[in-house]
Computed example of a mutant assay.
Amino acid sequence: MKRYFILFFLTSLLTGCGNKGLTPRELVTEYYDAFNSSDFNRLTGVITDSITIIEGEYVMPYSKESFHEQFRWDSIFQPTYKILELEEQDNQIIVTVASSSKRYKFLKNDPLTCQFRISFNSNEITKLESLDCPNADWNVWQTERDSLVNWTKKNNPELDGFIHDLTMNGAINYLKAIELYENRKDAL
């Protein structure tokens, strides 16, 4: 009987050591800290088994496995995230984040500051919705992206398609294309 009590106590203790004690603000901070440290295991501790990312008209549902692939893709660009503001609003968090990366630098939008609405379920993050990116210049972004894609298609067709390949290999090809483009002989 004593063994069962100890086993029950330890099981209760271990299952209760998750994020039950973290506030929504702390969960959001941990989420971005996990990205900054490239620690997917930390990240899985604060998200639900399925997480949805909404950017404009794009609704992207992820399982933890598919979110891991997105995480790996993102990590290739060596991003950093800095929380500028956190505000609680109707059981959600509105967070303003400045992010920098090799990709944003190339697209001439670095740092990219955006605001997100983060929703929770059972003390875990379940949804991130992009609200606004006030300092983004989407015209410059599109011009730089299109120049890179078109140049790569013509000069390095083996890398063509990187823009739609959201795997780690796609991100590696994206960085290769940037490097080749920036070091091209016709660049001034």
Score class of each variant (00 low, 15 high):
residue 184 R to C: 05
residue 104 Y to S: 08
residue 108 K to Y: 02
residue 174 Y to T: 14
residue 129 E to V: 08
residue 78 Q to S: 12
residue 161 G to Y: 03
residue 186 D to H: 02
residue 174 Y to A: 03
residue 58 Y to Q: 14
residue 183 N to Y: 06
residue 142 Q to N: 15
residue 170 G to E: 01
residue 106 F to L: 12
residue 181 Y to F: 15
residue 98 A to I: 05
residue 162 F to T: 05
residue 72 R to W: 01
residue 37 S to C: 08
residue 29 T to E: 15
residue 126 T to R: 10
residue 146 D to F: 07
residue 149 V to F: 06
residue 63 S to A: 01
residue 75 S to K: 13
residue 28 V to G: 04
residue 157 P to R: 05
residue 2 K to W: 09
residue 44 T to A: 10
residue 87 E to T: 14
residue 165 D to S: 02
residue 111 P to R: 00
residue 119 S to R: 07
residue 76 I to V: 15
residue 50 S to C: 04
residue 151 W to L: 11
residue 47 I to S: 02
residue 57 E to H: 15
residue 148 L to C: 07
residue 3 R to Q: 10
residue 158 E to R: 12
residue 183 N to T: 14
residue 64 K to I: 01
residue 35 F to S: 06
residue 168 M to C: 08
residue 24 P to V: 03
residue 134 P to L: 01
residue 183 N to H: 14
residue 47 I to D: 01
residue 9 F to N: 04
residue 77 F to L: 04
residue 132 D to E: 14
residue 109 N to F: 00
residue 54 I to E: 15
residue 14 L to R: 06
residue 32 Y to W: 15
residue 3 R to V: 09
residue 117 R to S: 11
residue 63 S to D: 05
residue 33 D to G: 07
residue 121 N to H: 13
residue 96 T to F: 04
residue 38 S to I: 06
residue 181 Y to C: 09
residue 80 T to G: 10
